[in-house]
């Protein structure tokens, strides 16, 4: 799980171009959207691409991801349970 969380953070930082942020700056439980990292709807779509590309998980739209994308921990949990690669 630790490894998955670190990899996931690196993938998000790269995909979202969060240049000044390191994996250690993202709290595993902090909200990703709104407050926290301040991500928006396009970023949610970007995380859908990460799930598809690296973990073989397909989500139809961002609203399906609303609960899953709460924090790094909730995304990692979801990946553990549903990954196909």
């Amino acid at each position: 799980m630790e490894d998955l969380i670190l990899t996931l953070k690196k993938q998000i930082i790269e995909a979202l171009n969060l240049e000044e942020i390191g994996p250690e700056d993202i709290d595993n439980d902090a909200p990703l959207f709104g407050a926290g990292l301040g991500l928006d709807s396009i970023d949610a779509l970007e995380i859908i691409v990460i799930l598809d590309k690296y973990y073989g998980i397909k989500l139809a739209n961002a609203s399906e991801g609303r609960k899953i994308f709460k924090s790094i921990n909730t995304i990692a949990d979801y990946i553990e349970k549903h990954r196909t690669k």
């Binding site: 995909a15 171009n17 396009i42 970023d43 779509l45 970007e46 691409v49 598809d52 590309k53």
Partner: peptide, 12 residues
């Protein structure tokens, strides 16, 4: 070579 994974932020 990585398959079909268009990035929405690049697309925007």
């Amino acid at each position: 070579g990585e398959g079909f994974f268009p990035s929405p932020s690049v697309a925007l």
